[in-house]
């Protein structure tokens, strides 16, 4: 694994290398080099099994992290590849030509995070949601509880008491802080 990483560091300028466990590591790569890195991994290093593609919303840094996890069935190692992309205008090169299933992942990301993958098949079709007109729901700034309370009809008659507050009300109601 270390050998591969050394190779990648020189070739694709990967950074932030973390060895999560003996057979799993994570690296970060620049957006421009990501697809060629993935292609390299698939074709040369034998990481032929595509495990998953997902995104993490780092809203504080105004970034989306895309994580591609690749697996080599022969060497039995995993490599997680992180790609940081701009949150304001999120686009990423599509990888559907490498694995056909990637298109599905990209469709979901487009819908749930609003990350665009130009050229990916059916990427603009709605995948899971139907008639969604709010901001993409997996983004951190989307408040699902608020949305649910406003949209659906929670049954009324609920209401709870905080024990400390309630005891204050009951036992020493007049004391202010």
């Amino acid at each position: 694994m270390d050998k591969i990483i050394k190779d990648l560091t020189s070739r694709f300028k990967v950074t932030d290398y973390i060895q999560q466990r003996p057979n799993m590591a994570y690296v970060t790569v620049q957006k421009e080099l990501a697809i060629s890195l993935i292609t390299h991994m698939r074709d040369i290093e034998g990481f032929t099994h595509f495990v998953l593609l997902t995104a993490v919303d780092w809203i504080e840094d105004n970034l989306f992290q895309l994580t591609y996890i690749l697996n080599s069935p022969d060497k039995k190692v995993d490599l997680g590849i992180r790609v940081m992309i701009d949150r304001e205008n999120p686009t990423m090169d599509s990888a559907h030509h490498l694995w056909q299933q990637v298109a599905t992942y990209q469709r979901e990301l487009k819908e749930m995070f609003g990350i665009d993958f130009p050229g990916s098949p059916r990427v603009d079709e709605s995948f899971i949601l139907e008639g969604w007109d709010d901001i993409p729901p997996y983004r951190r700034d989307f408040d699902t509880l608020k949305y649910a309370e406003e949209t659906y009809f929670p049954r009324d008659g609920r209401g709870s008491n905080d024990p400390a507050e309630y005891m204050k009300k009951k036992l020493y109601p007049d004391e202010e802080k």
């Binding site: 032929t48 099994h49 595509f50 495990v51 694995w99 056909q100 299933q101």
Partner: peptide
């Protein structure tokens, strides 16, 4: 198709 589609 196994690798192509991530069949497990």
């Amino acid at each position: 198709w196994v690798d192509q589609f991530g069949v497990v």
